[in-house]
């Protein structure tokens, strides 16, 4: 028995028939072939599969496929617009806020969701926003700095 789901992924409408026991992560990676969203644990504990669903960061491995219906999903592939990186992506490069890169899409999504909701986050608020994302390489400090500077740049741009 397959469930019909209609949703938007990176602003593109999608219609799929999905098994109810599959996860959003499976759908994104295997059906839509958006491989930027990673599986690090499959249990909602590492944040590598973080996507933005209706404005909120979410571990895609914890969401069952039928729940996708009606959602607006953004994955890492949706951050750059018309070939131009988002400010946060640029700042990740500038700050060298990545090493092996496997956790990077998840951090970008958590950081993007934070800045959409709170354009002027404190360092503590940034830490809270990314505390569900594990990174083994960087020691986090450059990731935090990249999010901080992105907030500064975006605020400056709005003035």
């Amino acid at each position: 028995m397959k469930n019909k789901v209609n949703f938007f992924i990176n602003e593109e409408p999608v219609e799929l028939y999905v098994d109810a026991n599959r996860t959003m992560l499976n759908i994104i990676r295997d059906d839509l072939c958006l491989i930027g969203t990673k599986e690090g644990c499959g249990a909602g504990e590492c944040g590598a599969c973080t996507i933005i669903a209706d404005g909120k960061p979410l571990n895609a491995c914890l969401v069952l496929a039928p729940e996708l219906d009606g959602m607006h999903i953004t994955t890492v592939e949706g951050l750059a617009k018309d070939g131009e990186l988002s400010e946060l992506q640029k700042q990740f490069i500038k700050h060298s806020a990545l090493q092996c890169g496997f956790c990077t899409p998840g951090f970008l999504m958590s950081g993007t969701a934070l800045l959409q909701e709170n354009p002027n986050p404190s360092r503590e608020e940034i830490k809270t926003a990314i505390v569900g994302n594990l990174c083994r390489c960087t020691g986090y400090v450059r990731i935090i700095e990249a999010i901080e500077e992105t907030a500064e740049v975006l605020r400056g741009g709005g003035q």
């Binding site: 958006l34 491989i35 930027g36 969203t37 994955t75 890492v76 592939e77 951050l79 750059a80 990186l85 992506q89 990740f92 490069i93 060298s96 990545l98 890169g101 990077t104 899409p105 970008l108």
Partner: peptide, 10 residues
Amino acid sequence: RKDAMMKVTG
């Protein structure tokens, strides 16, 4: 980093 662009775009 040489690998940064590929990694930040997923």
